[in-house]
Every structure is written in structure tokens, then in C-alpha cells.
């Protein structure tokens, strides 16, 4: 790790100021991605601005079916929130399967979304839940937020403060974990609303990150059942191919995970 300066912000405003004053600052949330990257000397921020002690960025609020999760809320808090579980247990389940207990007690939803790892779990949920990413300066629809591998619509110095969504009638997440990292080799979040809207969002498999699958969505809108998936062709040509899994295999996993997610609702 290179030398760096640590700052603890107590408000969003102060964090933004600290960032403005830094030569090459970075926000620090759970540090579960950022710190290992720094330890490997792949990142060298001059300043770290810690967001974990900003009260307004923490906690889960459920109002009817509308949900707001502060960006500095840990995976563990999401996984174990009784309120959230009553309206969207799928998200609790997703958070409960991120990494290991140590990671879940440190890592945060804001950090995960800002990082937009192509194999991370939350981006699939955000996209399928049609969530809104709330920042210090605007609100961004999930569909516009995730722009590529580790790329987001965030501008320099912009802070995610929370995410918001209305809980769908049905939702489920199925993840096929990479045996080494336990990140998603293919993860599928399905959501169905009372108005018939269906969203299928896929993580871990796309060569440019998280994406929605229109054909699967169409098939499931017509018939919300595992069988509906059977006749859909999932094309592997835009999928990742690496040491762990070929594109064709990932395409198969997407289909199987979708089917299982629907069964689980």
C-alpha cells in the first residue's frame, strides 16, 4: 500500500468538501474492494474520505412498499433487516450470500454499486427492481447508472447517498457462485410487478457488465413459470469467457438460474 491520508466525514456535505480539497481522493465505504486494491498497489489515492460515519447515509426505511437503503448500510444489515424481509426478502437473501461474514459486516450497498464489479450481486437487484440511485446531486435510474465493466454514471466526486425502490409483488435472486471467489459466475434477479411488468437482470455473465434480458422478460411476462424459460434461447455471444467459465456455459447458467429464480418466487 502506498501512503495515504485518512479523513472521516460526518456529513455528505463535509465529504464533498474533503474530496474537493484532495489531490486525488477516493471515497471509502466498507473498504472491502478499495483496500485490497490499494494493498496490491493497483490504486494510490492521496486521500481516503470515509463515508461510514455519516448518519444520513445509514439505515433502511420501509414505508408501505417503498424502500430506502442508505448507501453506507452494510450487507449484513440488509440481510438481517426484518422490515425489508416483509416486502422484499429476495434482497435480504442476496445480501446474505455476498462473500463471507467478515465481508458482509464491512461491505456496503453503496460501495458495491459504485464499484459495479461485473460479477457483483447488487447491480442485478438494482436493475431488476428498477431502483433509483440517489446521490448528493441527483437521482439516477438503475438502467442509466451501470454503464460498463466497473463503470457507472457517477461524476467526479459524486456520492451515492441511498438507493430507493418500490418492492415488486414477486422477486427472487439465484446465483451460481464462482468456486474460487464466490462472486457470481451467473446471477439472475427476477422481479414481477402487479401491473405485469417483469424484469430479468443478469450479473456475472455479461461482457459489459450487468444487463437485462428482453427475451426472458417477454417469455416470463407472458407466463410467469419456470417452464416459460425453456423455449428461450440465451445467446452466449455477448457473454464473458474466462478461466472459470466459457460464454456458452454462462449462457446455460443464465437460463438455469432464471428458471430457478422463478421457481423460488
Amino acid at each position: 500500500m502506498y501512503q495515504t491520508n485518512y479523513h472521516r466525514a460526518s456529513s455528505v456535505q463535509e465529504a464533498v468538501q474533503m474530496m474537493g480539497a484532495a489531490t486525488e481522493g477516493k471515497y471509502l465505504s466498507g473498504g472491502m474492494t478499495l483496500i485490497p486494491t490499494m494493498r496490491q498497489r493497483l490504486a494510490a489515492p492521496s486521500d481516503l474520505i470515509d463515508l461510514r460515519h455519516i448518519a444520513e447515509m445509514k439505515g433502511i426505511a420501509v414505508n408501505g412498499r417503498s424502500v430506502r437503503i442508505g448507501a453506507a448500510t452494510t450487507h449484513e444489515e440488509v440481510a438481517t433487516s426484518a422490515e425489508l424481509r416483509t416486502v422484499c426478502p429476495a434482497l435480504c437473501g442476496l445480501a446474505g450470500h455476498i462473500g463471507d461474514p467478515a465481508v458482509r459486516h464491512m461491505g456496503t450497498i453503496g460501495g458495491s454499486i459504485a464499484n459495479n464489479d461485473p460479477a457483483a450481486d447488487y447491480p442485478a437487484a438494482m436493475l431488476a427492481l428498477d431502483a433509483v440511485i440517489v446521490t448528493d446531486r441527483r437521482e439516477i435510474k438503475a438502467g442509466d447508472f451501470f454503464t460498463g465493466l466497473f463503470e457507472t454514471a457517477l461524476e467526479d466526486g459524486e456520492i451515492i447517498t441511498a438507493v430507493r425502490f418500490d418492492a415488486p409483488a414477486k422477486a427472487a435472486y439465484q446465483k451460481f457462485a464462482n468456486p474460487a471467489s464466490r462472486y457470481a459466475m451467473a446471477g439472475v434477479f427476477v422481479a414481477k410487478r402487479d401491473n405485469g411488468d417483469v424484469r430479468v437482470a443478469v450479473t456475472g455473465a455479461g461482457s459489459s457488465g450487468v444487463f437485462r434480458h428482453p427475451d426472458l422478460e417477454a417469455a416470463l411476462s407472458a407466463n410467469w413459470s419456470p417452464d416459460a424459460v425453456a423455449n428461450v434461447t440465451v445467446d452466449g455471444s455477448d457473454m464473458l469467457s474466462d478461466l472459470h467459465a466459457s460464454a456458452a456455459y454462462r449462457a446455460n447458467l443464465v437460463k438455469v438460474m432464471t428458471k430457478r429464480a422463478v421457481s423460488a418466487t
Binding site: N178, P179, A180, S181, Y183, L243, H244
Partner: peptide
């Protein structure tokens, strides 16, 4: 079931961390 060291054709080690080298864990 899990472990394997892989080099690419240029001799770079692809499995140089636990992100890519799968060790058995209790739940395996």
C-alpha cells in the same frame, strides 16, 4: 474438484490469488 494452477501462453500466472485459485472450504 477445485484447484488448478493456470498459466497463459505468455507464461503469466492466471491463478495468482484466491479470486482465481479455488481452495476447498468447509462447505465444499
Amino acid at each position: 474438484l477445485l484447484e488448478g494452477v493456470h498459466y497463459d501462453d505468455s507464461g503469466q500466472l492466471l491463478t495468482a490469488s484466491y479470486m482465481d485459485y479455488a481452495m476447498p472450504r468447509a462447505d465444499d
